[in-house]
Design a protein around this nucleic acid. Structure first.
Lengths: 255, 255
DNA sequence: CGTCCTATTGAAATTCTTCAACACTCGTGG
DNA sequence: CCACGAGTGTTGAAGAATTTCAATAGGACG
């Protein structure tokens, strides 16, 4: 099975005057909240020499499970899904990542998960050995990577609780609540109402929640009918009362 | 709900001659395979001043979810289970740890999971701030902690695949296979046959696999009837053919 | 011997999946 | 402009897997 990866390389490589902040980093979110914030200007200059920015179309595979790790990336825009497969092809999405997350397993010889663009994604990527060299020079960089790993670990465990112990209805509420918190935090009105585009299609939601497409669809319909969410056009959702949604995330003892 | 923690403190604190390897570290597995291997003798001496060894009885709680983090530990012996709860009391075990694993989430203000002894456990524990001070001095220590976090992340994701996409039968096979690999690696005969004690009771297995006690029991019975495992006394299991068990871990396309 | 705890087994109930049909949207081409 | 088809999502009914409820069994211990 051959898959062609379409990468639109944007030619943003530039002449860099040493000891000045690289232009391509100046307005970058990863420079502040991402791992690049751990780097000095000099280190950033060094890194940016090996950096390329890509735009990856939605649904394009970025890395394969089991493949030798060659590059790491920062997400500049869009949503990335991480997934694993069973031998007979069942899929489980085991994580979602948003800007300015770091993508990849540091120090790992091969990818333990598949990486795919859930939406159109803009990446800033660099070779494995460049990152590892920088890491060995900068404890602060390793610390940031470690914090990112710990964040992913915390989320993975949250989802284990969801997958192991929550009903289909709770999972859907949990998922929508999670997305609401991670996407477009600017799109919120005062009272906690939010509207946003779900970055996954129904099949992906199913693969994330350990359900089938049909169950996902039915549960979303129920949420719509009960007024917890409003559906604009399959992807676009409005959540009038985020707290109400959160309440459906798990059945409280008194309900 | 008050829970009394019974800790048998073994009085192994000792006079330490500076710059010699602390006696209590000399035969310690964590010194080699665990995080302490990252430390110099001097650092080890410093750490061991704040170190206490405990023996924790099976089923005793070691830390609570949401509690302020005060101490970290290395496991010297036994099996520890990590778990999370929903608001209405459903439990999910989200990880198992074995000697010489490090227990706790570094840099975290409060515990994101509950920690409980699955078997009788021997711990070597030390205050949070001591570890963090050492970490800031030793990039190699942070690296080891990072590797431990990455290992846990990899396992968590493996289990997400299991919880989200595998049948009850596959989960049980998966669980037994996992335990077989992690417990008593010396108890194996030549051809891959192993026997060992399952460190969890049926209820814990259920909470780990996202099933009920009854389903766990039924699936174990099926494995026994089909000759994949032999049950000695509920806890004690023999696996004549480990590869056969692994084959049941997921249904291959051609079965 | 009785009690507590854990595990097993059976039968009914429930949740979710599977299979199947249909609906909606969007682009292409007649 | 409309028909067609592909891709995506919804809905219904039947089926399967797992849970729930209930009863029983076995072992450890006083």
């Amino acid at each position: 099975m051959e898959v062609t990866i379409l990468i639109h390389e944007t030619k943003e490589r530039l002449d860099i005057h040493n000891s000045e902040l690289p232009i391509l980093c100046q307005s970058c979110e990863a420079r502040h909240k991402g791992i690049c914030g751990a780097l000095t200007t000099d280190q950033l200059v060094k890194l940016s020499r090996h950096t390329t920015k890509h735009i990856v179309d939605s649904e394009q595979q970025i890395a394969y499970e089991g493949e030798t790790t060659k590059r790491y990336s920062n997400i500049l825009r869009g949503v990335v899904k991480l997934s694993k497969l069973t031998a007979d092809g069942r899929q489980q999405i085991i994580g979602l990542q948003f800007a300015p997350d770091f993508v990849g397993r540091p120090f790992s010889r091969e990818n333990d998960v598949a990486v795919e663009a859930a939406t159109e994604v803009k990446l800033c990527s660099f070779p494995k050995d460049v990152l590892e060299k920088l890491t060995s020079e900068s404890p602060e960089l390793e610390h940031r990577l470690h914090e990112q790993s710990l964040k992913e670990l915390g989320e993975a465990r949250e989802w284990m609780l969801m997958l192991g112990r929550k009903s289909a209805a709770e999972r859907i509420a949990n998922f929508l609540y999670f997305i609401a918190l991670h996407i477009d935090p600017e799109n919120q009105s005062d009272k906690g109402s939010r509207h946003f585009e779900i970055p996954l299609k129904r099949g992906d939601i199913a693969d994330f929640l350990g359900l089938t497409i049909e169950t996902v669809s039915r549960q979303i319909t129920k949420l719509r009918q009960s007024g917890v969410i409003k559906i604009v056009n399959n992807r676009m959702v409005e959540i009038p009362d985020l707290e109400r949604l959160r309440g459906l995330t798990e059945t409280n003892s008194g309900e």
